[in-house]
């Protein structure tokens, strides 16, 4: 089990993380908007996360922290 923390305010909603998650559990949150008006990423099923850190590796703004 791993824990993914997303700094929602810093996320620019670019979607790169959503394109590499092997479990498809990180998606763009179509309901939320951060201060800058971006739709941040969110984790749909946290317990499925295997802590591979693909999402964090491809994130251009370093907003994802992974604990394992």
């Amino acid at each position: 089990m791993a824990k993914v923390t997303i700094n929602k305010e810093r996320c620019k909603g670019c979607g790169l993380c959503t394109s590499v998650c092997p479990r498809k559990i990180i998606v763009t949150d179509t309901e939320a908007l951060n201060d800058k008006g971006y739709r941040p990423a969110k984790i749909t099923e946290p317990d499925k996360c295997i802590g591979c850190a693909f999402c964090a590796t491809i994130c251009p703004d370093c907003v994802i922290t992974i604990e394992k």
Partner: peptide
């Protein structure tokens, strides 16, 4: 649980000026 991925110390805690999805940030 231990942090296995976080912002590197020598990368400032600063909003990067790059466009969304620009891989300069990476």
């Amino acid at each position: 649980m231990e942090k296995i991925f976080e912002r590197p110390h020598s990368l400032s805690d600063f909003v990067l000026s790059y466009c969304p999805g620009c891989t300069h940030g990476v």
